[in-house]
Computed example of a mutant assay.
Amino acid sequence: MWALLAFLLVVAATGGFMVRRATAPLGGSQAAQGSSVGEVSRRNPADPFAVGAVDAPVVISEFSDFECPFCFRFANDTRPEIVSRYVDTGLVRIEWNDFPVNGENAEAAAKAGRAAAAQGKFEEFAQAYYKASAPISGHPHFVQSDFERFAQEAGVPDMEKFRRQSTDGTFDDAIEKAKAFGTSIGVSGTPGFLVGNQFISGAQPTEVFHRAIDAQLQKAAATEEGA
């Protein structure tokens, strides 16, 4: 079973979800492009921040910030192809990790994303957010009225609950813990990705992700054969 790759499940500081701790730190203030580290993945069937099979051979752990222009470049230009080629075929799972480092707008967007996730609509909210971000050059600077519009487009069922949770302190602690977790493994900028145990920094060309994913798939297959 792919899900039985040898990493211990422990509770990590990402809002209470189960996480597979990195077996080695990324090191320094920023991980090196292409460096190999321990896998960081949750593989929780109830995870509202994930897409793809829970037992997919490879997990992409994405550390992202809604306010980051490079994050929505990845989301709009590269992610759809990865989803079509790898996620929809059961080979890859993508797990989102909050890492809002671009000021108050980023923190507010992270809270809105979690409020949507609390009602099972994170993916839909993120897609609405990124679609609106596509024509923008630079930081989108979206505000609460925009978040509510995206939540409505996403089909969030209880908008009053969304408004309350996206503006009060419901998710403050979870977001701070998520940022602390990213920092603890060496993530310092967005977007950052752990493709299996290989770190990729920034919105790299799609081919960079293909090479990393294919290498990790080969590694996973070799591990399975040797088990």
Rank of each mutant, 00 (worst) to 15 (best):
F63P: 01
G120P: 03
E95Q: 12
F74D: 08
F49A: 07
F142R: 09
T89R: 11
A134H: 14
P57N: 01
R149C: 03
E153Y: 09
A151I: 08
I60S: 02
G113M: 01
V143K: 15
V101D: 05
D77K: 14
A50C: 04
A56K: 03
A56G: 01
G103H: 06
N105C: 06
A112P: 06
S133H: 14
K131V: 15
F49Q: 08
F150N: 02
E81Q: 12
R93S: 11
S145W: 12
Y129W: 14
E124S: 12
A50M: 03
Y130V: 13
A56P: 04
F70H: 14
Q119M: 11
I94K: 01
E62L: 13
G120K: 04
P140Y: 03
A126W: 09
E104C: 02
R149F: 01
S64M: 03
D55C: 05
N105R: 10
K111L: 13
I136T: 13
F72G: 10
L91H: 09
Q152S: 14
R114I: 11
P48V: 07
R93N: 04
V58F: 02
A56W: 03
V87M: 00
F142M: 11
T78K: 05
F142G: 10
V83F: 09
A75Y: 12
T78R: 03
T89I: 06
D98R: 08
E95I: 05
A108F: 04
D77A: 14
A108Q: 13
F66P: 00
P69W: 05
F147C: 07
D146K: 09
A106P: 11
A118Q: 00
P69V: 03
Q144G: 14
A134M: 12
V58R: 11
S145M: 13
F147H: 09
I94N: 08
A110E: 08
E153K: 13
A116R: 09
A108L: 12
F122G: 00
F142D: 08
V54N: 13
P80S: 00
D146R: 07
A50D: 03
F66C: 04
G120C: 00
F63G: 05
F66L: 10
S61Y: 03
E81G: 01
F142C: 02
F49R: 11
V101S: 02
Y129E: 01
A116Q: 10
R114M: 06
G120M: 00
V101L: 07
G52R: 08
E95W: 07
S133L: 14
V58S: 04
